[in-house]
Amino acid sequence: MKEIEELKLPDDIRYTDDHEWAKITGDTVLVGVSDYAQDQMGDVVFVELPAIGDTFAKGDEFGTLESVKAVSELYMPMSGEVIAVNTALADSPELINQQPYATWIVEIKPSDPSEYGQLHDAASYLQLLKG
């Protein structure tokens, strides 16, 4: 298990209480899970993804990550419509462990871009992890 100091926490993305991250790319937002989340879960062996066109409110469950240890739900960091899913995860779920920030899970078109500002920045997320 990584020490808190060993975790990578990029500061160009925002984080949720449930350890997802959100990254703005133009009009859309990429969503993944943090280094802390992947380290806690262990090897991810299966990813359940939503369908393109599904819409979710902030905090809704949109999929699951199956790790060796358990089934972990994924929650939306922002409200919006799924416009793309990372199909590479079907054959290579381990990408989430190997590159948690380069591996997005869904891309959404946010219905309320101001929700981004309500998420934790890296410093605030680090405080959350330190408890």
Binding site: M1, Q40, G42, D43, V45, V68, K69, E94, N97
Partner: peptide, 24 residues
């Protein structure tokens, strides 16, 4: 840096950094 957990009254390694899949 093993991921440790309780098992049978002992604190034991669940997996090491190689990960449970490689260890399986």
């Amino acid at each position: 840096s093993a991921n440790m957990a309780a098992f049978g009254g002992y604190e034991m390694p669940l997996w090491y950094p190689a990960g449970a899949k490689a260890e399986h």
